[in-house]
Nucleic acid binder design. Structure first.
Lengths: 269, 269
DNA sequence: CATATTTTGGAATTTTTATTCCATAGTCGG
DNA sequence: CCGACTATGGAATAAAAATTCCAAAATATG
């Protein structure tokens, strides 16, 4: 029963995929954990990985053998040989990037990474959970979701629509292509998600207004509570996005939007 | 003579630089070898490193202690821990989330925030500065920039185009609206930016192919070096985006893209 | 429901690896 | 050239890790 052990990491992944389905409970746990934490193999001990997978060490040993290795050590060798760490330390790396001369692409990137991280941190701190839940509830009960966002908000609007589609939630992106006006697509029972940041886009506000007039719920995603979009919305979600230069990273806005979409998708599904 | 051990990799490098000069022959060999092979520490044994430095294991042990560690194991721990927990176990976390009472929207948001944060961190660690500079150079010298990205990459493509427009760089978004084919818009002297992630979009690859055939520079933004887009690109930028469930946060991809666009915009302006 | 088969957990064992210690070699100051 | 001190290599020991093995539990089979 000597099978040859996987010779490359790709081999390894294939073998893993092959066997996973036919495995009993504990060994399946091993497979799942290893699949998700492949890169830890090189720097961990049997005991550590076993603890992570929540199985006894012996189960992990058996698992290695099923994969075709003589034992854990042989498997680990494969990964140790291939080991090539990225830069180890985030803050060190970030200052290295910045040192490469102000205005260099790398320095710019460091700034945007920083801005994105800050935005995400603030979002986590400042999110209004009640408003978020309310938004999810309103969107869950609605028919078609109409998403509108232009200029810098357009990527967000398009991604939202993409996620809704993937989650089989009827959604329509109002993107103004061909200046076709789709405002009559708003029907009773629908809901609207409008996204705009200063300087606020008239078209976006107009659609929100329209939806409000027809009595549809409007979820507004915007930069502050005093935004003109706030008045038009039944629920307002504010996003504290940190700008760098004239451009926002959108990290926080996207995170909020996807969370919203996935929550709605699951609730409906 | 209990010195506190270095707490970060940066500490470690400083300490190493401090002591190196005052070291006798064998220990100096250790210092030199370790300095040149810092990244192997996490995955090697004392014996292996000692062999590499061409000293007996005991010399290496002494060396570790001079650096302030209690022994080799303590030093190794520093590097193993610093090796980014790679990519957390998101699929498991997602299913946990579903089990634990259908995950409140706020919990979902927390996950996406975390995914975004990790992605940005990974990006900072792993970005290829040379490739980035090369991409900027190629785009700076080009005429019109043709941006293509569909599905999940579409938000990135559209934002890139937005930023280029704002910076007065001629750019064209190939978004497939109306299935109009714009491949003949690619003219000599232009350049192409193609963005796609697994599962790769045929249309995006087709345009990249077209550009390559005409001899235009192609900047590929993708998830790994083995992506089919890599073959078609003159410069490849890989983005380590952490997926949460089926959806990527795009934080890292956007940060990279904006940095690229702003760098090109300034260089041209 | 009894029996055969598979899976499991953990204790016992073996192997590998880290660490200490000390006799010896080397170096420096006088 | 002699002693005092430092550095070195390797053998001995301790610690940690991997691996095996088997009784017990779980599961499948007739």
């Amino acid at each position: 029963m000597t099978v040859t052990p996987p010779a490359t990491i790709e081999d390894f992944r294939n073998r893993l995929a092959d066997v996973t389905d036919a495995l009993p409970k504990r060994l399946r746990q091993c497979a799942d954990y290893i699949a998700a934490n492949t890169d830890r193999i090189a720097v961990s001990t049997v005991a550590e990985l076993a603890a992570g997978a929540d199985v006894p060490p012996s189960a992990l040993m058996r698992f290695c053998q099923i994969l075709g290795f003589s034992g854990f050590s042989e498997m680990q060798k494969l990964f140790r040989d291939a080991y090539a760490p990225g830069w180890p330390d985030y803050s060190t790396r970030l200052s290295n990037l910045k040192e490469n001369g102000a205005g260099s692409p790398a320095a710019l990137l460091a700034e945007f990474v920083e801005a994105g991280r800050l935005s995400l941190e603030q979002l986590a701190k400042s999110v209004d959970e009640a408003a978020l839940s309310q938004a999810v509830a309103q969107l869950t009960d609605a028919g078609t979701l109409h998403v509108v966002g232009l200029r810098r908000a357009y990527p967000v609007a398009s991604y939202l629509t993409y996620v809704f589609e993937k989650m089989q939630v009827p959604a329509m992106l109002h993107d103004g292509t061909g200046k076709l006006d789709h405002r009559h697509a708003l029907r009773a029972g629908d809901a609207c998600i409008a996204i705009t940041f200063a300087p606020y886009s008239d078209e976006t506000l107009a659609l929100a207004q329209d939806a409000q007039t027809r009595g549809l719920p409007v979820i507004g995603i915007t930069d502050r509570l005093t935004s003109p979009l706030a008045r038009l919305s039944s629920t307002v979600l504010t996003v504290p996005e940190v700008d760098f230069g004239a451009f926002r990273s959108l990290s926080a806005t996207l995170a909020l939007s996807i969370a919203l979409a996935v929550a709605v998708g699951s609730a409906r599904g």
